[in-house]
Design a protein around this nucleic acid. Sequence first.
DNA 1: TTCTGTGCAAATCTTTTGCATGGCA
DNA 2: TGCCATGCAAAAGATTTGCACAGAA
Lengths: 131, 131
Amino acid sequence: MKNLKSLLEESNLKITPQRLAILKELDNKGHASIEEIYETIKEMFPSISLATIYKNINSLKDEGIISEICLHQKPKYELQKEPHAHFICQKCGYVEDVPFSEIMDKNIEKKYPNSQKELYIYGICAKCKEK
Amino acid sequence: MKNLKSLLEESNLKITPQRLAILKELDNKGHASIEEIYETIKEMFPSISLATIYKNINSLKDEGIISEICLHQKPKYELQKEPHAHFICQKCGYVEDVPFSEIMDKNIEKKYPNSQKELYIYGICAKCKEK
DNA sequence: TTCTGTGCAAATCTTTTGCATGGCA
DNA sequence: TGCCATGCAAAAGATTTGCACAGAA
């Protein structure tokens, strides 16, 4: 498992159990919403507050430790990784990372140098197609 | 100018001054948020309600007359057009449509057939670069 | 010990809903 | 005339803020 603690050590944020729990949740699930993070962490930290989740998500975002994506207008969060696209299943909601190299035209970097790209692909995943 | 009225005539929605005003605003600006639409239309219809904007935006979206995009987590709306990408200037907020044909890898359709794509490119526009 | 983080409650948006009235077809 | 649309106010949701206390360094 990735060393989540070191992500905080290298930042301006202190290491707290709540922050580690958020990072662990994102590492496990890959992508999660505020509400999903809250519900999961509440099982281990029954006293945790929604406000704490919000504050930490914002701090972690500001430090560049996590990043925010927008799936059908709903914000979700993931650990910061190489730039990549997202495939979203319209039936089950499954989200998959897709490397930009596999799908992005090579010319786009010439046309829009130093730009930050977000690509969402909405379709039906393999599992749902079987059914 | 495009015949905005006919968009409503061909739908299940009745023609009202408020709806025409919303479509006209989107046709003028290209892209606008609920708040922007509200502020502009209020100048002509001081009695218009925010709730009316919300309700109509939802109806127009359901009818496929307009579509919703997500710019830095803020929802904006545009008249329904050919699928295209969006370039967003990070300095001035300017939004430009970019045809998919210019930038999307041709293989993406093979890999994800019948999928709906959303591509956002965040950068600095020509005008802001000059400064 | 100092200063940041947490948790609670309240405040602030944002969006939706219910209902009486108004207006399009 | 019969519905659908509008506008208002209230409700519901989502996110932020203030403050006192707790906990990391």
